[in-house]
Design a protein around this nucleic acid. Structure first.
Lengths: 144, 144
DNA sequence: ATCATTTAGGACAAATTTATCTTAAATATT
DNA sequence: AATATTTAAGATAAATTTGTCCTAAATGAT
């Protein structure tokens, strides 16, 4: 469904958000350990997310990553997915045709459209804040 | 969503089915041309599908691939996807955790489960016959 | 029987994704 | 100013996926 880069990115963001809720910046090493993601790889993904102002980064000692509550509330999962995986998941053809629409649909287009709308709705209705809260309250986990 | 192998496999099966509905076997070259898929690669995928009796293959002149109407009606899209891509799409964690369930869910588990159920339902309710008919009637296309 | 045609299947190659490593740039602390 | 710490970013490597090529096996037609 999502690329590994996207999975790592989402987990990292959720972890960083929980830390930020406690007033703590998260270093990439901590992120890697606590989100079960490869550090250097995740650092690149976070670089991209930083570029899009989804998360903030700081160099030097006391540096790391953090998010404001505003960022957590504004950032939808759909934003993260779009930045990392592009919008193929929202618009792409399920059978890989270069174009596919109601006018000239692939055989799965109709059925696929509905499923995709469900995915899009789910991702646009879920914010980083929502998921960070669940993790903070111990209702969910990032590693298994 | 699906791997390229799966996309090519689905397109190939739908094309083969329409040909079978007209009493024609389809050679891999025809399949490639008419489904817009790489021939040799698709041949391997069809080999797997043949092993699972989703499609039939015949060697020699007059050989090729075909499906009985019974096969078309019995074969759900979910079967093809499971054979080629495995059942990760049905059971796997959206964030890539090795395990993820209601007991110890990842942050996206609840929302993801619903979406996944929608995908599963869509794939199990759609048969090869359904899609082949749509293509045969000119309502859908395999190439763009 | 021979031959041409087709799938089967393994080896190989290319492309993409995932992941690591190394050096540079930034910056807080001393 | 010097130093230690951290992210940034490019180079490189490993793994996986995608795709091609070639030979063997099967088989219908002559």
């Amino acid at each position: 469904m999502f690329s590994k880069a996207c999975e790592h990115g989402i987990k990292a963001i959720i972890y960083i958000a929980t830390q930020s809720l406690q007033g703590q910046r998260a270093k990439i090493g901590d992120v890697a350990i606590n989100s079960g993601s490869p550090g250097a790889f995740t650092a690149k993904v976070l670089g991209t997310l930083t570029k899009y102002s989804i998360v903030n980064s700081y160099t030097g000692p006391t540096g790391g990553f953090d998010m404001s509550v505003k960022q957590m509330r504004q950032t939808k999962m759909s934003d993260i997915v779009r930045v990392i995986d592009g919008d193929n998941i929202y618009n792409g053809c399920g059978l890989g045709l270069s174009e596919c629409n109601n006018d000239q649909p692939c055989p799965m287009h109709d059925k696929f459209s509905k499923v995709r709308a469900g995915i899009k709705e789910m991702l646009t209705k879920t914010t980083v804040y929502d998921l960070a809260k669940g993790l903070q309250e111990g209702k969910t986990v990032l590693i298994r």
